[in-house]
């Protein structure tokens, strides 16, 4: 039974996190929660199926997996079912959100939360000024 952390593409939902920073986030999370990481799994960029993770799980029988965020979970139907079916006994931890749990219900809840947040409009802080933020609030319909 192995404990693994997983790095993915730099684009993680609304965040842009280089893989070395992903490792820092997950290592710090593991340290705070007294978890020892034994294996670091690099997923390829531009992929959200976590296929490498599942392939390694078939061989190594992972017991606990740390990801940086719930946004790294698959967001398409068959990819979601695959990870839920293959890894329902694995304890998943999401460092940025501070969430952990296992099983289909837990993973579904995390995926749904990520999807909900992806639908929320965002104010681009690089394209606004402090003094405009109050106007945005005042004029929002």
């Amino acid at each position: 039974m192995t404990v693994a952390s997983v790095t993915t593409d730099i684009n993680i939902g609304p965040f842009k996190i280089p893989s070395n920073a992903q490792n820092m986030i997950m290592n710090n999370y593991a340290d705070r929660n007294k978890i020892s990481i034994e294996l670091v799994i690099p997923e390829p960029m531009m992929s959200r199926s976590l296929a490498t993770l599942q392939w390694i799980h078939n061989d190594r029988k992972l017991s606990l997996v740390i990801l940086s965020s719930i946004y790294q979970l698959p967001d398409e139907g068959n990819k979601i079912s695959e990870i839920i079916n293959n890894m329902s006994e694995v304890n998943f931890h999401f460092a940025i959100e501070g969430l952990n749990g296992k099983g289909g219900d837990f993973l579904h809840k995390c995926i749904e939360e990520a999807k909900k947040f992806m639908k929320i409009s965002m104010i681009d802080s690089t394209k606004t000024k402090w003094s405009e933020l109050y106007e945005i609030k005042k004029n929002f319909n």
Binding site: P14, S69, Y71, K116, F117, S121, S125, L133, I136
Partner: peptide, 16 residues
């Protein structure tokens, strides 16, 4: 409100 825009804080800080 869930129906209003967010700024920089995201799932790191907020939940539905």
């Amino acid at each position: 409100s869930f129906k209003k825009p967010i700024l920089q804080k995201n799932t790191d800080y907020l939940k539905y």
